Simulated assay, not measured.
Amino acid sequence: MTFIKRVKRKLLPPREVIQGYENPELVETIFLKTINYNPDSDWPLVAGINTVLDFGGGAGLHYKVARRQCPDIRWAVVETPAMVQRAKELGTDRLMFFERIDQAADWLGTVDLIHSNGTIQYVPDALETVRTLCSVRPAMLAWYRVPISEETRREVQTSYLSDNGPGSSLASKEKLVRYERNWISEQAFIQAHEGFRITERSPDPTERGTQQFRFARV
């Protein structure tokens, strides 16, 4: 973010607030920014991977990165009903959007990787969702930007509309976005991965106070 933009946000904060991830304006912003985004780097995580269930994958941002080095990779995004409805026009025989985890897993068949970046903290029951994802029995799970706390707690988080989605802003008028976020107990999060073992765990460098994990099927 430029210095001028930071100063403008501090002196002239937006007055309009939109609520939650189902908001049509937020969905449209993420959708359009994803279409316009052109990744320019490889992604070692997906090397040799054939199928990915991307939990909270928006309009397919991560697929755009993955297909640079794996053109034939099959990618199933699980998202909110509003995002699925908007992004379905981007679907192909290798990229599809689903509202439910079981639907995505059925389409993929065998799941090599479950990927989730900054999403699990926004679902109503994070631990039950983790258990459902593990029941798919992927070879590996990769989690990024997981807010970890000594115990589970909730807070209201606020972001700028233009900060949602990849790349530069498309918004002509800045707004605030407000939604609930859950901090997750580390012990409970790890225990929810029954049948899996931790292979990596460290602070996530992209968001303060969050952790990144990788699990492998036992």
Rank of each mutant, 00 (worst) to 15 (best):
D125E: 11
P166M: 06
V136G: 02
P166A: 04
S135A: 12
I114W: 03
K173E: 14
T129G: 05
I120Q: 03
A142Q: 12
R137E: 12
P138N: 07
H115T: 08
Q157I: 00
K173I: 04
S172L: 15
L113Q: 01
V146S: 06
P166V: 05
L170S: 00
L141K: 09
S149H: 13
A126N: 04
S172Q: 09
P138E: 07
I148G: 03
C134Y: 00
D163K: 03
L170H: 03
A171K: 05
H115G: 04
C134G: 11
I148D: 04
L141Y: 12
L141E: 14
A139N: 06
P166Y: 10
L176C: 04
V136S: 05
D125A: 08
P138S: 10
E174L: 10
R137I: 01
S169A: 11
D125W: 08
R137C: 06
R137M: 06
L176E: 11
M140R: 14
V177R: 00
S149M: 14
E151W: 08
N164R: 12
S149I: 10
N117P: 01
M140S: 14
R153A: 14
D125L: 07
L176M: 11
S168F: 07
E128D: 14
T132R: 12
S135Y: 03
T158F: 05
Y144H: 15
Q121C: 09
R154H: 05
R145C: 13
I148T: 11
L170K: 01
N164Y: 11
E128C: 08
R178G: 00
V130A: 00
R131H: 09
A142Y: 14
Y144T: 13
S162H: 04
K173G: 01
W143K: 07
W143V: 13
P124L: 05
R154L: 02
L133Q: 07
L170P: 01
I148W: 04
V123P: 05
V146Y: 04
T132D: 14
K175S: 04
A126G: 08
Y144I: 02
K175W: 06
V136Q: 01
R131Y: 12
L133Y: 03
N164E: 15
P166N: 09
L133E: 10
S135P: 06
L141M: 15
Y144A: 11
E150P: 05
Y122G: 09
S172V: 12
Q121P: 05
I114K: 05
R131M: 11
L176Q: 11
T132L: 11
K173A: 03
V156S: 08
R137V: 07
R178V: 06
S162C: 01
Q121S: 13
G118A: 15
E128V: 08
Y160I: 00
L176I: 07
L127G: 06
N117C: 13
A171I: 02
G118V: 08
G167Q: 03
T119A: 11
V177Y: 00
A139G: 08
K173H: 10
T132E: 13
Q121A: 13
P147R: 13
T119M: 10
T152F: 08
V130Q: 00
E128F: 07
T158G: 00
I114A: 03
